[in-house]
Structures are given as structure tokens and as C-alpha cells.
Nucleic acid binder design. Structure first.
Lengths: 153, 153
DNA sequence: ATGCAATAATTGCATAAGCAACTAATAAAA
DNA sequence: TTTTATTAGTTGCTTATGCAATTATTGCAT
């Protein structure tokens, strides 16, 4: 059985994995004037057009500020536009522009490439198990973060 | 078989997991005047005292600049000190101070806590498999990053 | 020995992300 | 209806990280 050396930790490996993914995605998306941070927003908008920045933040499990900045960049780059929601004038409805819609096949290709590379030597069972474990671990730790936050109040 | 919705991706889950870990670690370490970014450096120094910033960067798979800044913070916070390597006056040898050495049990406890939380509903087999897969995925993608970089030259 | 390449560290620049404080709009309560 | 609380968004501040350029030292080649 492989023993875990004391100075090693899963956190370190996840950090490395995450940074490598950013690196890869950043390079793939550079030609299109966006970076890895905007990618998940654009992907989500492809399938849920017209949602608010708040909803985007919730779905992507990030801060509203992060969402606001990502959408601002995407707007500036010409991929989305915003319309004040007539039913709730505090909120924007974020829509893809033509240019944004046309990115679909590129985004899917980049996403697939990354997946294929990440999991290139994984069996089908491993792929499913891996994804499942990442989600479970994420839920476990973020639940704990949430709990801590609530006790502060 | 669970189908992957098009706008979802492993990258997104890993991003969420990573950010949740940072959040958790940051809060755990705050009382000691350091944050999650310095943690792996301190951990590594517990077991490889006297190594250079370059070596730290290589071991932790990060940029030298990141290593330099982490060590600068740890030095400022009183956990490490640096001595110019007499055998190679370009490099520092980084050592833990008394205060740094005394952090061992705390760091190990924090590390264990995080592991226990992350993997709380994992079987022993899953724990091993998860770690193994994270490392493999990290190797797969970073190898690709490396390759791309080389072709640019 | 002199000049050139590689190594170790530092710093500036850019990007990202979260928290907190703030504004504006809406909903709920008085 | 006025007051209060909540919601959506924005902005400033802080921290982290990588890349590129720069300096200093060392090693290698001529």
C-alpha cells in the first residue's frame, strides 16, 4: 500500500491540477480574446441564455463580484450583452451575441480536448468514479465552509 | 450511466473544489498569520530544511516568483530565515526558525482535518484511487502544457 | 582569461477571486 | 404608507499566481 509522505497532501495535488488546467485553458482560449475564467460563464450561457449574474454566480459556485467581472469581460469582448430585467430592474438578463453563439463548437471542442487529455489513461469506470469523487469532495469541504460561515453570525 | 450535461465539466468541479480548499485552509491558518499559499512551503520545509527557493518551486510545481513571495511572507511572519548558500552564492538556503519548527503539529493537524473532511464519506479504496487519479490527471495535463511550451521555442 | 550560457532570485505587469462596503430596486413589516 | 430587510450589481482592497525582464553568480567554451 502506497504510504502518504507526511509533507504531501491531496490539497497540493489538487492545486497543481487546477493550475495546470488554467494554464491549458488559458492558452486554448487566448486566440478568442477570453481566458479560462470566462469560459465557464460562456458555457453556461450557451444552455441558459438570459439568466442573471447572480444566477450565474450561484450555478458556478463563485462570488457575485467574480460573476460581474467575468460578464463585463465577455461583454467587452463582444460575446454577451446585458438587458435590464423588466420584471426585476435590479437584475440584468445576460444574453449571448451572435459572436457568442458562434463560439459553441469551439468551446465544446476545447472542453472535450481538456477532458480527453486529463483522462487520457483512465478507464471508463475511472472517469465516472473520478468525476463523482471530485464532486463529493467538493461538497464535503464547501458544506464545512458554509457551516463555519453560519456560526459566525 | 450518468450523462454529463454539456455545459458541465470536470474543470468546473475541480475549480470549485480548489477554491473551497483554499477557503477552508485560509481560515484554519489565519490565527497563525499565514494563509493557504504559504502552507505547502512550510510543510515541505519541515521535511527538507535548508533547500533553495528554486527547489521549493520545483517540488511544489509552481513558479519561482511564487516561491520567492511565499518565502518572503514566511520570513516576515517569523517562520523561516534565509542564508546565502556558501557553495552557490546565487541561492538561498531556507531554514525553519524555532517558531517554524513548533508549527509542525499544528500543520499536521490542519492537513489531517482537511483530508478527513474532504474524504469523509470515501471508502479506503476510494481514498487511494482518488489521490492516484488526481495525480495522474495532473501529470497528463501538465505534460501537455510542457509540450506546448517546448514547441513554441 | 574573456565571453557566453545557465542558474537563482527579484520585481513589474496582468489576471483572477473573495470579502466588505456601497447603491439601487424590490419585498415585507410596521 | 413609511420603514426595514432582502436582493442584484458594482467597486475597492487584499491575496495569489504566472510570465517576462532584470541582476548576480557560476560554469563552460574558446
Amino acid at each position: 500500500m502506497e504510504k502518504l509522505r507526511k509533507h504531501e497532501s491531496i490539497g497540493r495535488d489538487i492545486s497543481h491540477l487546477f493550475r495546470s488546467i488554467r494554464n491549458f485553458m488559458g492558452r486554448q482560449l487566448e486566440p478568442y480574446g477570453i481566458s479560462d475564467a470566462q469560459f465557464p460563464f460562456l458555457m453556461l450561457l450557451l444552455y441558459e441564455d438570459g439568466i442573471s449574474q447572480e444566477k450565474l454566480a450561484t450555478s458556478l459556485k463563485c462570488d457575485r463580484a467574480t460573476s460581474a467581472r467575468a460578464i463585463a469581460k465577455l461583454e467587452y469582448a463582444g460575446y454577451v450583452y446585458r438587458v435590464i430585467d423588466p420584471d426585476n430592474r435590479r437584475a440584468y438578463k445576460v444574453f449571448l451575441t451572435e459572436q457568442g453563439i458562434e463560439m459553441e463548437h469551439i468551446l465544446l471542442a476545447v472542453s472535450k480536448d481538456m477532458n480527453d487529455i486529463l483522462l487520457e489513461d483512465f478507464t471508463e469506470e475511472e472517469k465516472l468514479a473520478f468525476r463523482n469523487m471530485i464532486q463529493r469532495a467538493g461538497t464535503n469541504i464547501s458544506k464545512r465552509n458554509q457551516t463555519r460561515k453560519n456560526t459566525d453570525e
